[in-house]
Every structure is written in C-alpha cells, then in structure tokens.
Amino acid sequence: MNEASLGQAAAAQAAAASSTMGKAGRPPAWTGGYWPFVLPAVVVILAVILFPWVFTIWMSGQEWKLGQGSSFVGLANYWRMTGDDRFIESFWHTLSYTALSVILPILVGTIAAVVFNERFMGRGVLRALFVLPMMATPVAIALVWTMMFHPQLGVLNYLLSLVGIPPQLWVFHPGSVIPSLVLVETWQWSPLVMLIVLGGLSSIPTEPYESAVIDGASRWQLLRHITLPMVAPFIMVAALIRTIDAVKSFDIIFAITQGGPGTASETINLYLYSVAFAYYDIGYGSAIAVIFFGLVVALSVLMVWLRQRTQWSEAGAAA
C-alpha cells in the first residue's frame, strides 16, 4: 500500500521532469501570458485591501472626527496612545486573552488529533460533531453561551453544583471574564487545531513506529519521541493561525460582554471599534488600527521564529 503510493509519487515526479524537459524547446512561453487571469483579482485587491491600507496610514496622521474637518497632526495620534490608559489596559487584555486562546486550543486540539487518528467505530460522525462549533455562526453561539453563563439561571452553574463546585459569576465579574471568554474560544477553535494536526499525523510514515515497537517502546514513548516531534511543525502552524485569529477576536467578546464588565474584557480590537464607530474619532482610530496590525505581525513573526527554533532543536536532539 505504502510502496504503491510511493510508486505513484515517483511516476508523477518522472512525468513532471519530462514535462520540464519538454519545455526546454520553447522556454518562456509556458509561464507567460497568464496575467489577464489575475487582473480582475488585482483590481479587487487594490480596491478593497490595498486602498484601505494606504488610506488608513494617511488618516492616522490626521486629527479628524467625523462631521468635523481634518488637519494634519503628524505622529500626535500615535503619541496619544502612550498616555491613553484605556488603550494600555486593552493592550494587556489582548495579550492575556491571546496567550490563553492559543495555549488551550493547542492542548485540546492536539489531544483530539491524537484521539481521532485512532481507528474506532463512528469516527467520521464523531469528528464531524467535534468540528461543528468551529463552523457555527459566532454571534449565534455567543448568545447561547451568554444564557449558559447566567449566574442564577445558567446551566453552567447547575452543572458545577452537581460536582459540588460553588456558583461562579463567569462573564459578569472582572476577574473571571477573560477566562470565561477563553473557554468559549477554546470550545470553538480546538477543532481547527485538531484538523491541522490530524493532517500532520496522517502524513507520518509507519517505519519509525515499526522499528520502535520492535525495540520495545511503550505507547507513551512512541507518542513522546516519535509522534510529537514529527507533528511539531503542524502544531506550530496551528499556533500561528490561532495567534492571528485570537488577537483579532471580536464577535465572541462583542456579543457576550461588549468589553465589560466596565472595560475588564476590552481588547484592542473592541477599543478600536469604540474609538472609530462610537466616538467617530477617525484619526485616532486609524492610528490604533496601524499599531494593532503591527502587533498582529509582531506576534506572527514571533511564532514563525519559535517554529524555526523548535525544528532546529529537534534536529539537535536527533543528532
């Protein structure tokens, strides 16, 4: 089975090689002439992605409230952020929310991938059920979670009482609001991690397992020393995607708490919404948007760097 697919791959490679050789006769023509296919997309991307970018950067240098005139103020909007306590607070909320919303789904999702990689009855159906939360409309599920979090009438406190845990205030207390929201985030996004890691697991060759089993390795040793190192790159890809999504998280927080109680769960994204679309402070909002994008990029670069480090250290460990 394995050999057969290897054979196919080799055949495909041979075919690819022969087609490259065929190209040699009339070199540039094959990759040329395709730009008309791309042109409409380029126009759309310029209009809805690039234009907003350039315009945002320009606006971030303006003092501009909607309905009033604008005037150029240089970097004043950026300077204003350093003295804006609400912005600084939202910055820390974003970091703690993101850290938890990456780590927990990675843990649950990786365990789920290992479990769903086993063969058992009804695996397809059960996996589909596990994936459902990820595809559901965030606002709709946020509404139901809000009802479940209700301190008196919510089903969660009832479930806790069954195992003897006193009722919690969940999203209604500043101290527990971020962990409660992360619970929803973990519930919703562990499936994405599972799918990515599962893709990785299914690509692992069986040979290392076979020789390890012959050498008398235990199940745990197989997981720890073969499976995890081999899927580590996939886990890191999942972590990168999770980081990008968690920093930008909006729907769940907005629909459940609107950043409250007070500003206890206000992340940068929610503060940005208030500044731009509740106070209509376009200039300052644009500056926050630019810094916010910078944060997303910085965290992504950090994750890519971590990924390269894990690969390097594994190579070191293997050697």
Binding site: I45, F250, N269, L272, A289, F292, V296
Partner: peptide
C-alpha cells in the same frame, strides 16, 4: 501557472489585517 508563490504572502497579509482596519476607510 505563473508559479507566483510569493503572492500567497499578500493573501496571508490580508488575513492578518483586522477587519476593523478595512472598515474605517471603506
């Protein structure tokens, strides 16, 4: 067909951009 793999980066950047930063200018 153009083997323009780099352009995938552009799409990644589009993905990294917060929705709200498209919203203000548009």
């Amino acid at each position: 067909r153009m083997k323009a793999r780099r352009t995938a980066m552009l799409i990644l950047i589009a993905r990294m951009t917060p929705g709200l930063s498209y919203l203000i200018p548009l």
